[in-house]
Design a binder for these strands. Sequence first.
DNA 1: AGGTATTAGTTGCTTTTGTAACTAACAAGC
DNA 2: GCTTGTTAGTTACAAAAGCAACTAATACCT
Lengths: 144, 144
Amino acid sequence: MQDDAPFDLRDFMPYLLNQAADASSRDFQSYYKGKYGMLRTEWRVLFHLGRYGAMTARQVCDRAGIHKTKVSRAVAALDSKRFVRREEMAHDRRHEELHLTAQGRSVFADLTQEAQRFDAAMLAEFTETEVKQIRAFLTRIARL
Amino acid sequence: MQDDAPFDLRDFMPYLLNQAADASSRDFQSYYKGKYGMLRTEWRVLFHLGRYGAMTARQVCDRAGIHKTKVSRAVAALDSKRFVRREEMAHDRRHEELHLTAQGRSVFADLTQEAQRFDAAMLAEFTETEVKQIRAFLTRIARL
DNA sequence: AGGTATTAGTTGCTTTTGTAACTAACAAGC
DNA sequence: GCTTGTTAGTTACAAAAGCAACTAATACCT
């Protein structure tokens, strides 16, 4: 193709975003996978419970925007690792409230700290204004 | 370092990047999937061949940073769709040069145009300066 | 009350990805 | 020329994601 302004993949925002997302996740992912054998969805569910308190699987789905089958399997995994405990709710036996165990809380604390460390390291080379702009941009793209 | 500024997922750059990447890819992905039954790797391989000319699978791997098994499968798929044609190289029968067929070229043209349209639409709400900063930021994160 | 519709959550099956082992062709050293 | 090593590409198997059907409990409607 011999266009005037040939379109390069690096000019394509979804491509750039995906590459950046992959690169930025890699190290952190290998941390929680290596240390706790956790998957990404498990980390997200754990995070939500640790950060916002006990809630049902449905609430995790809504808050985190993850499909219920993924949450269901993540909870099963976290349960078998004893990071999460299920508590059946009396008034409606369909629901079960998910609580972090003591171990779960300590994993949450560790991962959160590590996440903050990663984040700080990644953003260290940018000014505060830049970071603010980036966040605004990404949030808008993601329509969060 | 703790509860003073509670850490939110939206403050975590890998999360933000992933959400933005997913959101930005969704529509374009459903376009090439719906219209041509293509997968992401197939689109990328097709793009490389269309944009940079015929090359071997290995060269696609290197240029695009995709693992050879993924490329191998993508090429097989593109071949069976008759978007790509394999040409064995005389001096070394291990290599085969990949060429777009006429059909492949027209799909490439369509997808490239569509990609540019998507990109323009996505970036329309940002100033040129902002876009430049974003690109610089993402490129740096992705270490391209 | 009794049938229908919803909602929470799980399970099964299919598609896609990731990893590692494998084949085939060539190159190099002895 | 034969053994060893490399490189291109494929295949086989395992992990994970996506989607749809399913179970169980409750709500709604007449």
